[in-house]
Design a protein around this nucleic acid. Structure first.
Lengths: 255, 255
DNA sequence: CGCTCATTTGACAGAAATCAAAAGCGGTGG
DNA sequence: CCACCGCTTTTGATTTCTGTCAAATGAGCG
């Protein structure tokens, strides 16, 4: 893991931002964008760095610009449980509360658009449209979190694994086709097996067995631990235990 | 199950409302309360009645006044998974979206303070303080949902059962001491075993075995299926796999 | 009392965690 | 370039736990 430390950098213009059309900015007028621009700055974190610790003061909030952030709890035995993954355009941090109940850590190298929390809260007060947009997105997140509860709470391990891989396959940037040597879309897994197992509520061993079972059944081809080629999407969905309609409704699954 | 149908009744005065000091009304000024009063009405549902179906148009929203509402998904096999429980003062329904991703059903006989969804959304637009209060409560719900993900995703069945019982023991009205014949607080379970199992991601059989295991270990005394006497809180917490500090932080667990 | 439904108990098969070890992979330094 | 080291991932063997099926018990009710 590279041990570079976070390097604060000034954001260029929000217009050039990769996620400005998806993040909270969509509720903002040009003048508001400029105001957000003033209180925000880009910051890079290396994989493994703690962005915000559990129980720490929540001084910054913002959006993921690139990379994946994991949201986790530390349990009594030091065992870590992942309760959510944040992808580009997702909001991180906790407004209206001094302490974070979770820790935010960089699952990959990430770039974040950071804002001072009190400054952002002040901004919200005077910009009801943006606040409403934030409320909408939090309501969606809440729905997604509950969908995930239904997955981890009521399904077999294979169903959870297949659901997770299916969701990964639908995320933007994960359906790149390779140079023609492969037939299916390439799924890239942004986190390691231990984190993936922690998110799916199982162990790395059981997870590995399930992935290889999918491989034996020709659902996917394992290129390496972080890359699969999807060979049979219909069968993947069947393994996930969802109907086609259900799955199409959960594009934004909160991960 | 009694098969009475929902009976619309006019709300008396919000002042006399059992939950007005806890529900979203706390962000509202007297004049706003009056306005809410105009668009809301009390409605009773018998246990088992569907308040809002999955995929149905979300025409009403509101607060639970008494009883317990379960939030559930129906999976492909007809199996039902409970993703949340709503207690008095909790908000139900889904604003800013036409279809509910979950169904809301009465787990017990319930009384709801109902409002027309569009009317409530219009009210929100002109009352930013209430909207902000709603945002705050949704952020808390989101934290709670994620805490629950960490429970169902990373713990054994016994840990989930113990966690749930511990949380029940902390809920207001659940720590009544009886007439002196008992030594510990009395925990009343508001839902039946099947719902409890569905919420904990297990089966009624396994749940029953775990509860009776706690009884054998003198952690609690089973008075009847819906009432336990808590004999050893420290051991219950140990079984739940949480540290004392962790547990004290999760009073409002989203259940 | 007899009915229905909820809960508990028992027996068993299957799934997953655990323990242990091997294989793969990336970096470092000789 | 290669050997070595630490880490991740995979595989194997075994034990434990949980779901399933089946049946008994218990509670509420007309």
């Amino acid at each position: 893991m590279s041990e570079t430390f976070a390097v604060p950098t000034r954001c260029g213009k929000c217009d050039g931002c990769a996620i400005h059309h998806r993040a909270i900015c969509i509720g903002a007028m040009p003048q508001e964008i400029a105001e957000l621009n003033r209180i925000s700055h880009l910051r890079d974190y290396a994989r493994g760095q703690v962005i915000l610790g559990q129980g720490e003061e929540t001084s910054i909030v913002g959006n993921v610009v690139s990379g994946v952030v994991k949201l986790m709890t530390s349990t009594i035995g030091g065992q870590q449980q992942i309760v959510g993954l944040l992808f580009p355009s997702d909001f991180f941090g906790r407004i209206f509360r001094d302490m974070s109940r979770f820790s935010y850590e960089a699952a990959t190298d990430v770039t974040l658009c950071c804002m001072n929390r009190p400054a952002f809260e002040t901004f919200l007060s005077s910009h009801p449209q943006v606040e409403r947009e934030l409320l909408r997105s939090k309501l969606d997140e809440l729905d997604s979190a509950r969908e995930w509860i239904s997955v981890v709470g009521g399904h077999t391990t294979m169903q959870r694994v297949a659901t997770f891989i299916y969701i990964l396959s639908r995320r933007a940037g994960n359906r790149k086709y390779s140079d023609g040597t492969s037939r299916g879309p390439i799924i890239s897994v942004p986190i390691n097996r231990r984190d993936m197992a922690a998110y799916l509520g199982t162990t790395p061993e059981t997870l590995s067995r399930n992935i290889h079972a999918l491989s034996r059944r020709k659902v996917l081809r394992i290129i390496d631990a972080r890359h699969f080629e999807l060979l049979n999407e219909a069968e993947l969905m069947r393994q996930a235990g969802w109907s086609r309609e259900d799955l199409e409704n959960i594009t934004t699954f909160g991960i």
